[in-house]
Design a binder for these strands. Structure first.
Lengths: 118, 118
DNA sequence: TCGTCATATGAACGTTTGCTCATATGATTA
DNA sequence: TAATCATATGAGCAAACGTTCATATGACGA
């Protein structure tokens, strides 16, 4: 295969593996979306937000107070979480209450926690 | 609570929620490690590497060929994956074969996939 | 209606990230 | 031993990210 030629000289060794694996790769954009999804979990502020929302729905101001951060920073991050459909919100007068979008998310967090304590 | 004073004026509204949630927050460094862990999944190249290693163990050169990327780029990313203990490796002569560190990882990937197709 | 409050948003800025290129390391073969 | 090959690594650079600051929006109460 020409596509491997520029990388290694000894391509014939594992050609069988490569052929087989190339056949079962999910489409490019699906893997991109997957990375995009996990990227959202890859920031301490957002992890904290998700964690506290796992305990209770909360307004922006509550979260900012709880995490000791500015309202703007939290609002920006909530937008990211909202875009990835990790949180939902309801408006109540001036306040906006955020909550986890579904139970899926806590389960992913829990699995991550499991892995880092081993 | 003084820590909330600079954020909002109307702090007394949800003080109860805040007190309760603050009591059950995991330690700062644990949440940091968790974000650190997920950050590794938050890149297309690394997701692809994890995906192909889920199919078969593979040497650096195989991965680079399969993904159509340079050997150096793959090697750099494998170091990140190694540091987070997501992959293990064995040496065989000049080649180094990488594999997923444990089954945990595929399960996390699968859960992510589930979420993005909904 | 005006002032106030909670939230959202845009620009700016410093930091982090991921790639490339060049080179180092370490093992194999001639 | 010298040449070759697979992998690792450091520097450099462009792009992406997360925070802050200033300001906009939109709802409530006086």
């Amino acid at each position: 295969m020409e596509r491997f030629a520029e990388v290694c000289e000894l391509m014939h060794v594992h050609e069988d593996i490569i052929e087989r694996v190339a056949g079962v790769m999910p489409p490019e954009d699906e893997l991109f979306d997957l990375a995009d999804f996990f990227r959202v979990f890859g920031d301490t502020t957002r992890i904290k937000i998700l964690y506290v929302l796992g305990q209770s729905e909360m307004c922006v101001c509550d979260i900012a107070g709880l995490l000791g951060m500015g309202q703007s920073a939290i609002s920006h991050q909530l937008r990211v979480l909202k875009q990835m459909r990790l949180v939902k919100y309801r408006k109540d007068g001036k306040a906006v209450f955020y909550a986890l979008a579904d139970a899926h998310i806590e389960s992913i967090l829990a699995q991550g926690m499991e892995h880092i304590r081993e």
